[in-house]
Structures are given as structure tokens and as C-alpha cells.
Computed example of a mutant assay.
Amino acid sequence: AYLIYTSGSTGQPKGVMISQRGLSNHMLWMQEQLPLRATDAVLQKTPFSFDASVWEFYAPLLAGARLVMAQPGGHQDAQYLVEVMEREGVTRLQGVPTLLRMLVSEGGLERCTQLREVFSGGEVLTLELAESILRTHDELKLYNLYGPTETTIEVMWQEAERDRVYAGEEVSIGRPIRNTQVYVLDAEMQLVPVGVVGELYIGGAGLGRGYLKRPALTAERFVPHPYSTEPGARLYRTGDL
């Protein structure tokens, strides 16, 4: 489906090969679980060098909704984004918490009266920010997304439920999307008990093919799946604890 470069935590760029299967699985999950309507408008403002841009492009086109394209570099200008969203009646927005915090602090989200869904990803969504976003509109829904580039955009999601956030409950990264498995394992690839620290491993339809022309690194990060009966099944080692 596509090749995209990421540096991750190493700082060394590497080309991640994502399959059509993985992309299709993600987009079908999104439309089934978080459907767009023909009257919706999605803001596309993420540079295409980041995989978060992929669903900004495809989600509205697959659903017959409207794709609103921001100008190049527009993602760095909060005031410009607010003007575009307000003028075009954007109903769905995604962004990293740093950007969302800027939009909230400048009163921008309050002006976007058509906005009904905000998606946060790429950084930790703090309780304080989640509450600030939800208080901008009574009907606004907020979702927290998690996923490495190697596993096709996002693989886990959680709605930030208003009552729980207002009660002081942190927003987790939630549960896996369809056809995805997530494990917390120790150094011996054994499942750890609830409450014990372990490394997050991801398997399923969204798993990338590996790194372009980097077989050693691919073997290091895409490891045999010890809990699958499917021949050749693998897990991705996220490095996240």
C-alpha cells in the first residue's frame, strides 16, 4: 500500500513497508466503529510524511464525506487552522496534544461549532487537556489513539468519556482495533500479570512487512508470534512499557 519513513525512538530513519491488507483493515474498522456521514468534513492538515495523514485522506473519500485540505505548513499555524475549520464547517479533527493544546488555549475549538469529533494521538493525552477539550462543546466526542508506524497508523483506541474525565480518571490507550492482538510480555516473551510492567507487543492484520532493505532490523523488531497457530505469524516489539 505504501512505504513511509520513521525514525521512532532511535533517530535513524527507516522505511516501513505497509500492506494493502493492513490499510484496508484500519480504514474498514474506522468506518464501522466511527462512521463518517456524507454531511461530515474532515480536515487534512498532517504532512504526508507522517502516517496519521493516511486516514485523513482516505476516511472522507471512502465515506463520501468532504475532504478539506489545509495549505502546506498549515498544521503549524493554529489560528489559520481555526479559520479553515470555522469557514468549512469541519466536523472531524485529529492532532497531536501539542497542537490541540494550542487550539484550546486560543479559544479556537469553541469557535468551531460544527466540530463533533476530536482525535488525539502521537503523544500522551493528559487529563487536563482532555477535560479542556471536552468542555468546549457539550456534544463533542474525544478519542485517544495509539499505534506505531510499523503497525499501520493506529492499533488501539479509547473514547475519553466525559463523566470519567470530569471525575479525574486518566484516559488510557484503550483496546485493540479489529483483527489486532496486543500483548504485554516480559523478557522471556511470557505474559505478565495485571499490574506488572512489561513490553507491549502487537500482532494482527495491520503488522507491516518490515523495514526496506533492513533484514537484520526487521528480524529484531518483527519477531515470531509465540501465541499464534498461523504459520509465519509475527509480533512487533514496540519498545513501549
Score class of each variant (00 low, 15 high):
Y2L: 12
S7H: 10
G22W: 15
M27S: 13
W29P: 02
M30R: 12
E32K: 15
P35L: 15
L36F: 14
A38G: 11
V42R: 10
Q44N: 06
F50D: 00
F50L: 01
A52T: 08
V54A: 13
Y58T: 09
A63C: 08
A63V: 09
A63R: 12
G64Y: 13
A65C: 11
L67S: 05
M69F: 00
Y80G: 03
E83P: 06
V90Q: 06
L99S: 06
G107R: 13
G107W: 11
G107N: 05
T113Y: 08
L115K: 13
R116Q: 14
S120I: 05
D138G: 04
E139W: 14
K141G: 05
K141I: 04
K141V: 09
Y143V: 01
E150A: 02
E154D: 01
V155E: 00
W157K: 04
Q158E: 00
Q158N: 03
E159Y: 06
A160Y: 06
V165C: 00
V171F: 02
S172F: 04
Y183S: 02
E188N: 15
P193H: 15
V194Q: 15
V194C: 13
G195L: 13
G195A: 15
V196T: 15
V197F: 12
G198P: 07
L200T: 10
L200Q: 06
Y201W: 11
G203N: 08
G204C: 07
K213T: 00
R214L: 10
T229W: 01
E230L: 04
P231T: 06
P231G: 09
A233T: 02
T238A: 01
G239N: 02
L241Y: 07
L241M: 06
